[in-house]
């Protein structure tokens, strides 16, 4: 397993993280989630991430694509498999664990 992972990492080079954050307008929870996410990414994934903010108030139909009902929701679309984390991401350790930042990006 470890060998396979090494092989994959080695093969693809540094992995690109694609993160989508669904928010509803500039609500306190949304702002807080965005701030928490950016801090985490800068610390652990600097240079290897992109964050897409989707404001459902402006683009409500996009909610169906990732089956969003809770706000804020963070979707990690890359690396696969897809993960979802809801909430304001205030518990950094929990977010790290959930996104598997350490295991996927040592």
């Amino acid at each position: 397993m470890t060998a396979g992972m090494d092989f994959r990492t080695a093969d693809r080079g540094p992995e690109l993280w694609h993160l989508r954050l669904y928010v509803a307008g500039a609500s306190p929870k949304s702002l807080k989630a965005f701030a928490n996410l950016r801090a985490l990414c800068e610390e652990h994934l600097a240079g290897r991430y992109e964050i897409e903010i989707i404001d459902l108030v402006k683009r409500p139909l996009l909610a169906r694509d990732d089956d969003i009902i809770a706000i804020p929701t963070l979707v990690r679309s890359l690396p696969e498999p897809m993960r979802k984390i809801i909430g304001d991401l205030s518990d950094t350790d929990r977010v790290m664990l959930s996104l598997q930042v350490d295991t996927l990006s040592p």
């Binding site: 509803a24 459902l56 409500p60 809770a70 706000i71 929701t73 498999p81 979802k84 909430g87």
Partner: peptide
């Protein structure tokens, strides 16, 4: 299974979807 919760959230997404 594919969802984690951390911190505060609400169901605005559902409201928005339903509203749309």
């Amino acid at each position: 299974a594919d969802m984690d919760e951390t911190g505060e959230w609400d169901l605005d997404g559902l409201f928005i979807r339903l509203g749309a």
